[in-house]
Every structure is written in structure tokens, then in C-alpha cells.
Amino acid sequence: MQEEVKNNNIQTAKAWKPKILAIFCNWCTYTASDLAGVSRLKYPATTRVVRIMCSGRLDPQFILTAFSEGADAILIGGCHPGDCHYATGNYKCLRRFHLIQKYMKQMNIEPERLRLEWISASEGKRLAEVIGEMTETITKLGQSKIKQQVANIEK
């Protein structure tokens, strides 16, 4: 534990840019992300995409792990309601999302740090917009303190 504290100095404010974990479902949002690429849309290099088959695979543990490892925010992307490739996975994702938000509120984690968006395969533009917006919001909010506070057992 103590060792980790050392490696964990907050980067200087100037150098810091948000790092956002993006968890996208294979069929809609990941495809939209490809489309944004093919269409050469531009957005900030703040996201890191992890692909899952369906947003229904979203395990709250992924989110907590990401926060505790240093994610400034997490973006979950799935198919629009009614459009999930597996029929209903995204509803389950939505339920978990709202419960995690509730938990985050109690933990004093800003709700903006976890965002869920339904982005269909054709909405490359929307994807780029969402990432742009989110980057702006998180930049304003500042670096997440979670990793530091988790590692740093204050006495």
C-alpha cells in the first residue's frame, strides 16, 4: 500500500488531460466508433475503448476498478432501447447504471464521471460529440481524486 502512494503523485495540473474509460458494446457503439474513424471525425484523445459484446455484460466491478486505478471518468455505450443485439441486455445495463449512480452519490463521486449513452451503429457523429462534451465536462471537473485517496491510507 505505502509503496503505491509514492507512484501516485498527481500529475501537475498543466500536463493533466482526462483519461476516460469507454466500455462499448460490439454491435452499436463500437461500430459507431469505427464509423467515426472511417468518417475521419475528430475528437480528443481522452478515451480508451474496451469492447464487450453487449452493454448487459457491464459489471459494476469494472467501473469501480477503473475509478480506483485512475480513470477520470467512464463512458458506457450501448444500443438504443429496443435495439440491443441481444434484445434486452441494455435494459439490464441501464438498471445497473442507475444503481451505481446512486452509490456514487453516497461516495461523493460526481455523477458526470459516469455516463451512459445509447449510440447506434450509424451515429458516429454522436459518438464524437459525446466524447467531446465529456472531455470538456471532465476537464472542468478536474482530475479524479479516487485513485489517490484509495491508495493513500491517511493516518
Partner: peptide, 20 residues
């Protein structure tokens, strides 16, 4: 790895609501 997160997943999934 995180008991609370895991049960949150189970509990939220058990709901039947679909409308946000």
C-alpha cells in the same frame, strides 16, 4: 473482487422495469 459492486449488479438486474 468487490462484493458490494457484485451484489449491486445482481440486485439491479433483478428489477423488471425497462423504462428509464
Amino acid at each position: 473482487t468487490d462484493m458490494g459492486a457484485k451484489i449491486m449488479s445482481t440486485i439491479a438486474t433483478a428489477l423488471n422495469a425497462e423504462d428509464e
